[in-house]
Amino acid sequence: MGALDRLTGPLVAAGIAAAIALPFWAPSPYAVYVAINAALFTVAAMSLNLVYGFAGLLSFAQLGFWGIGAYVAAIGVKDLGLPIIPAFLLAGAVCAVVAAGVGHAALRLNRHSFVVVSIAFTLLVLTLARDWTEVTRGALGIPGLGLPRPFGLTPPGDSYYVALAFSLPALGLLLVIARSRVGRTLLAIRQDESLARSHGIAPRAYRLFAFVVAAALTGIAGAIFVFHLTIVDPLILDIYYMQTFLIMVILGGMGSFWGVVVAGILMSILPEALRFSNDLRMILYGLLLILAVTFMPYGFAGWLKARRGEVWRRATPATRLPAGDA
């Protein structure tokens, strides 16, 4: 306990201040570019954490929502002529509605089947992206996207503030959920669904809530991401993104908010700083994933928490109960 908890407030305030000032102290425009990825990936990873780390549902559908959000926003701007902000909101709304429908059906199944259906869902989205050419333009994709430039900063400064204007409130919302009774209830359901039901908790309603919120946020993150890339094509549904989100959640710690936020930021920045080739980086990710799952299943945050548990265990060797009046 103690030191880390007391420092959280000042650390977070300093972190947010540093993030807002980043374009003015970043060593290069490329660093700002990396920071945009970090902001969006962290939201997607934390959304996955809400679904998997909290609600206990390993959902590959997150990748599908990342792609749906990207396509809906692109089509909204290019074909429907929407302004950019309404297009992003539409992306979130479509993802939420689709998630409500898919979740309503898939959450009736057991955990194994849910995983399989979530994979099937994402494969379907990929198929649509590639093959529904009238709408998605197939493999060519929809080019010519771009984020607004309200401040006229050196690129990609403005894009960075757009990403931050979404990511900070989104993470704030996720923090509120994680810290609330709803977050606690999700953790309870993940740990013991039967016990939760015996306590009057309806698991499906809570899980559906987590699934829908995560879908909407992931969809908007995906939308901003492709506008930052300036093109959306079926590569937005590359399994690489899902793997990255998963590794951030596992290393940061399932069910931990700050763990995953820190992992999301570090894992976006570190590989760039270390100048690894893409293949070497992925090999390292794969190794870390296997090692973490095998030896540190609840990630770094889980490991910290386990150590706190040890403190309790040692402080109270075989606690004796007060003798009864029998």
Partner: peptide, 22 residues
């Protein structure tokens, strides 16, 4: 339950609060 069930990672107080929240 016959096989004891608690929410292992939640604090003991949270275990109790969760049982009455609904």
């Amino acid at each position: 339950f016959q096989q004891v069930r608690v929410y292992d990672t939640l604090a003991i107080e949270e275990n109790l609060l969760t049982a009455a929240q609904e």
